Amino acid sequence: MTSGELTRTEAIAEMVGEVFTTADYYEVGREKVREFARALHDDNPFHWDEAKAAEGGHPALLAPLTMVAIMGTKSQAQLLEAHIPGNLLKSGVLQVDQSFTFHKPIMAGDKLYCDVNLETYRTVAGADLFTVKTLVRDVDRGVLQESWTSLAGPGEEAGRLPDDFDDIVDRVIFSGADSHVQPLVPSSRAEIPAPEGGPWTTIAFDELTEGMDLPVRRQQFTRGDVINYIGVSGDPNPIHHSDAVAHAAGLDTVVAQAMLTLGTAAGYLTSFVGDPAAFRNMSARFTSPVYIPANEPAVVEYSAKVKSLDPATKTAMITFGASLNGKRVFGRCTANVQFA
């Protein structure tokens, strides 16, 4: 490094807050909504039945709460690969947190742009810790959703990965990932709207009590589930389908996508609440991977509790969690919901 040249950390930090947007919109298809709900084992009728959605006051099918994963993940990868220096997505990056703020529901027929930016960046003991913000806005309805994805990477030196790791990945990864990619374009921060007030078609607020438990749900995840989610969401990461890549990355075996297990948790919550549009925000920390054996399912147990109630606004905080073989999959998980 010559005098006056920025260090890697300084160069990355200079890009914090710089906003880029997708060059073209993503049109939400009615069958894509159903396809994504199916991948998440989400039977909420507002994702499947237009008549039921209309009865709830919605002019089209509602997308599952985490459907931003389809367009948002690609936009984040483009940002980090093409516009942020330092190769933050080098092999070994793990997602550690995910949070959402919901302003308006995403619906079939929406034409969505994604605004992305590096929101925070720091190093701890040489490792990269960073958060990418994704804002979703419709051509006509404005800002619909904000999400924050926090990741941890190995920093400048991956170290633990084998020398031939890239070759192992190249032998199994989807070969068309770079085809027809439209570049992101510079943008500015969008104006955040005031939240919509409903009313939403939920269970009655008066039916809730502080401390009440939601029914436990046990959900199977097989290799077929994670491979189907790859196709539906467009997630190309081979640790979700290749034992060779998973082992080379230091994992016991193939792991389920964090957004698959969290999206299924969101469906578990909306099945209790009723209307997905009633959710104001949701967040989760990923504490351990969900390993998927080759010849049998992994069974994840979802549970939730009404933590607190606000009678003045008819809102509730719900805490939720998931476990696999008694080990926590999520930590510090909350959702705030507006009830009828």
Rank of each mutant, 00 (worst) to 15 (best):
A256V: 04
G263N: 05
H58I: 06
P289C: 01
A194R: 13
A312M: 08
Q338T: 02
V245E: 00
G4T: 01
M212K: 14
D115S: 09
R285N: 04
Q257L: 02
D178P: 00
L62F: 14
A265C: 06
P297W: 15
M317F: 04
V28G: 10
V93T: 13
R160Q: 11
N44P: 15
T202R: 06
S233K: 11
I292K: 09
A158M: 04
M212P: 03
M212A: 05
V33W: 12
V143F: 12
D170R: 12
E207G: 10
M212I: 10
G211Q: 14
L324A: 01
F46I: 05
L309W: 01
T201P: 08
P199M: 08
G224T: 07
T101C: 03
D235A: 02
A277R: 12
V255T: 09
F165T: 06
G155L: 02
V337G: 02
R171L: 04
N117S: 05
F339L: 00
M1W: 12
E119M: 09
S233T: 15
I84D: 14
K90W: 12
P193C: 01
A63Y: 15
K74Y: 11
K74G: 09
N281S: 06
I230P: 01
P64D: 08
I203L: 15
D110T: 14
R34H: 12
R223Y: 13
D138L: 07
P105H: 05
V254N: 04
P193A: 00
Q76T: 14
K32S: 02
V306N: 03
Y121W: 04
P311I: 04
K111F: 02
N117Q: 03
A37H: 11
D170V: 07
K133C: 13
S283R: 15
W148H: 05
